[in-house]
C-alpha cells in the first residue's frame, strides 16, 4: 500500500507547490492548505501503514496484537493538523489585510506598491 500513498503524497506536493508559485495571492491560500496536508500525510506514512490495529491498549488487560500502528507519528500529526489550522487562519487573515490595504492581489504589484 505504501507505494500508492507515496504517489498520493507526491501528487499533493506537486499541486501545492504549483499553487504557491502563482502570482495571485488568493491561490497561495489553497497552496498552503494543500502543502500542510501533504506534510501531515508524509509524517503519518513514515512509520509504515498498519491496517485495523489502532494504538489503543485493550481495557480488559489483554495483550496488544503483534503488530500495532506506531503511535508517535500519530501524536505528531495530531498536533500538526491543529497547528496548521491555526497558522492557516493567521496567514489567511494576513493575506486578506494585505489585499485590502494594497487593493491588488498580484504579489508582483504588491511589491511595487510597497516601494
Amino acid at each position: 500500500m505504501e507505494p500508492l500513498i507515496a504517489i498520493v503524497i507526491g501528487a499533493i506536493y506537486a499541486s501545492a507547490i504549483y499553487m504557491m508559485l502563482r502570482r495571485s495571492i488568493v491561490k497561495l491560500v489553497i497552496g498552503l492548505i494543500l502543502i500542510s496536508n501533504a506534510a501531515n500525510l508524509l509524517i503519518f506514512t513514515t512509520a509504515g501503514l498498519t491496517r485495523g490495529s489502532p494504538p489503543l491498549i485493550p481495557m480488559d488487560g489483554s495483550a496488544l496484537p503483534e503488530v500495532v500502528a506506531d503511535p508517535l507519528p500519530q501524536a505528531l500529526v495530531l498536533t500538526a493538523i491543529v497547528i496548521a489550522f491555526g497558522v492557516l487562519s493567521f496567514s489567511v487573515v494576513l493575506i486578506r489585510r494585505a489585499t485590502e490595504i494594497m487593493q491588488v492581489d498580484d504579489m508582483d504589484q504588491m511589491k511595487e506598491n510597497a516601494k
Binding site: 489503543l56 481495557m59 498536533t79 491543529v82
Partner: peptide, 12 residues
C-alpha cells in the same frame, strides 16, 4: 486517555 478523544479533538 483511554479511547480516541482528548483535548485537541474535544476542543475542536
Amino acid at each position: 486517555h483511554n479511547e480516541p478523544g482528548g483535548g485537541f479533538i474535544a476542543g475542536l
